[in-house]
Design a protein around this nucleic acid. Structure first.
Lengths: 207, 207
DNA sequence: GGGCTTCCGATACAGTTGCATCGAAATAAC
DNA sequence: GTTATTTCGATGCAACTGTATCGGAAGCCC
């Protein structure tokens, strides 16, 4: 298999291994040897795909970011027990996106831990921070559009608030301070307040 | 100075060194040697104070948590340009506490980075998570009391929401996605909405 | 089937890590 | 002054880290 292997596919394979390890042992537990072993390749292959470890981590972060964003865009995998009615309103779309952003579903715990590990590292690593900002900007844009569609005022700021709240709730669930149910309740209460400001049927009381 | 040194004072000194390093290089950059050097003591002294590295980290996390909580309790150091009038309403007290919780002031950036580093590590380290939960519970209790005093409904859930939002905003400022001003604006908008629900003009009566 | 290129698996290597060990220094009791 | 006790600073050590190097295997072109 020499001469031009599918490098891109292998990179994704390695990125998945990075995520699995970051999920289990945090960011410190991600070593080249463990990554290679987890990915089922040798260390040499990893080194061929990524010149340095940091390059590998950057790629993995971007990988996770894209995956999460893509899933949010599609409104989740559909395992949320919804009835599949496609004709829901903008508010409901926003709610689904927010819940998805918060990675509150059980099977997303690993992703959430990976994300948190990356965020923490990004706080002291400018290259990672750059990747992260891009992902956050994409999320904010999307949420802002949804907020605007749902009739919320000041969509950008509300999107930033929503994203920060989702991230914070995710974190608190991860460390066991909140149960997923409590986090979901908090998020939904926030959303209800957000969309009720302009929505008919609610009290309009914005001063 | 043999025979019974002030171990507690030294522990705090070391904890401060841990925080300084975690601020600069993240959690991975905290090594026993660097901590000892930063604290101005030798490795032997560190090893005498803490049996293991993890014990040291636990202590440092608790140290930071207590300090942050104490400052929040006092409503900040007073550098917030306030006029020091003590007769403000509950809403204002809540606002000050929230801003303080979010560690948005410039000189708290270091503390914020330390906190984030600890949180990320706690996601994969049950002992650290236990310390963290305690701190979060204390914060939630305090915020819940303030929310109740400000006339908000469902104080516990609102406190949880507020804490998560503050944490998320802090994170997003740290990675450069939000400016401190934007984070502050988002937080204040949330607070305004929170207290406006029951208190349209001033302090509303608790239902 | 050669020759060349591309890739990989293993190993070498210097540096660092957390922890254990141990002699020396410094007080307190006598 | 002597001794006992506590603390410290230095060093040793095994394990592990990221990276560099290198021999060999596997495909293409002739």
């Amino acid at each position: 298999m020499p001469r031009q292997i599918d490098h891109e596919a292998r990179r994704h394979l390695i990125a998945d291994a990075v995520c699995a390890l970051a999920d289990e042992h945090g960011f410190e537990g991600v070593t080249l040897r463990d990554v290679a072993a987890r990915a089922g390749v040798s260390m040499g292959a990893v080194q061929r795909c990524f010149r340095t470890k940091e390059e590998m981590l950057r790629f993995a972060l971007d990988h996770v970011g894209r995956r999460v964003l893509a899933r949010i865009r599609t409104g989740g995998d559909g395992s949320d027990g919804g009835d599949g009615s496609g004709g829901d309103g903008a508010a409901e779309t926003l709610a689904r996106a927010a819940v998805e952003t918060a990675l509150l579903r059980g099977e997303q715990r690993a992703e959430a831990r990976v994300w948190l590990a990356f965020v923490a590292q990004a706080a002291v690593s400018p290259p990672l921070a750059a990747v992260l900002r891009e992902a956050y900007t994409g999320l904010t844009d999307m949420l802002a559009r949804l907020v605007a569609a749902a009739g919320g005022a000041d969509p950008v700021r509300e999107a930033q608030t929503l994203l920060a709240l989702a991230d914070g709730l995710t974190t608190h669930v991860l460390v066991g301070h909140l149960t997923p149910a409590a986090a979901r309740a908090a998020l939904e209460a926030h959303l209800a307040r957000l969309t009720a400001v302009r929505a008919p049927g609610g009290r309009g009381g914005l001063g």
